[in-house]
């Protein structure tokens, strides 16, 4: 069931270990398509899920995650192996997802009737209790929640990724959590 719905196993959040990741990047830089595929397998689920939780649109999330990986392929030769791959990828994913969310909000406010043409079902039709609650948050607040609670970055790391002061990250997190707490039924 987990495989069908794409639920994210805990060990897939920030995998693989740094040494293994460096090896995969080195081999991919030397021409190993298998190493690239391993890198992809390790990072796609979290990247795709993060995009989806921010944009709430399966097609857009796939596109955003694909774009991030294509950017990674484009810049693979220049990638500094001493730095972790995940944060670099997640930064692209989250920023593009925020941009997409803002653009959609603008379209809605401009009365564009085609918001969902060609898109997957709206989130309330497929999700559980979380998606309608997340949908109440603006995209940049969703992004902070996803970076903190799905991808497990610290507020300082999130601030660097989104070029925000740490205080702003903390206040968005606090507000986001308060709002979600109000919207999602508290478990017994």
């Amino acid at each position: 069931m987990a495989a069908e719905s794409g639920a994210l196993a805990p060990d897939k959040v920030r995998q693989p270990p740094p040494r293994e990741e460096r090896r995969l990047i080195r081999e991919a830089q030397r021409g190993s398509a298998d190493a690239l595929a391993e890198l992809y397998a390790a990072h796609w689920p979290a990247a795709h899920r993060a995009a989806y939780l921010v944009v709430h649109d399966a097609g857009a999330a796939e596109d955003i995650a694909q774009d991030a990986f294509l950017a990674a392929v484009d810049r693979l030769d220049r990638f500094d192996r001493r730095r972790p791959f995940g944060p670099w990828l997640h930064r692209i994913v989250i920023n593009r997802a925020i941009d997409w969310g803002r653009r959609e909000a603008l379209r809605r406010s401009a009365g564009d009737p085609e918001k969902h043409s060609g898109a997957a079902a709206p989130p309330e039709a497929i999700g559980g209790e979380l998606m309608p609650a997340l949908a109440q948050l603006p995209p940049d607040q969703r992004a902070v929640v996803v970076l903190r609670h799905l991808l497990e970055y610290t507020p300082g790391e999130i601030g660097r990724m989104l070029e925000l002061p740490r205080g702003t990250v903390n206040s968005r997190l606090r507000r986001g959590l308060d709002q979600l707490r109000d919207l999602i039924e508290v478990e017994g």
């Binding site: 398509a33 397998a41 996803v146 799905l150």
Partner: peptide, 28 residues
């Protein structure tokens, strides 16, 4: 909240992963 974020159903996840991999392999 962490559990909800990880478990939220993601429609067509497996197919999307396959499509993405094919594209990335080809770009590579």
């Amino acid at each position: 909240l962490r559990d909800l974020l990880r478990e939220e159903p993601l429609p067509g996840a497996a197919e999307a992963e396959g499509r993405g991999l094919a594209l990335v392999r080809q770009a590579y």
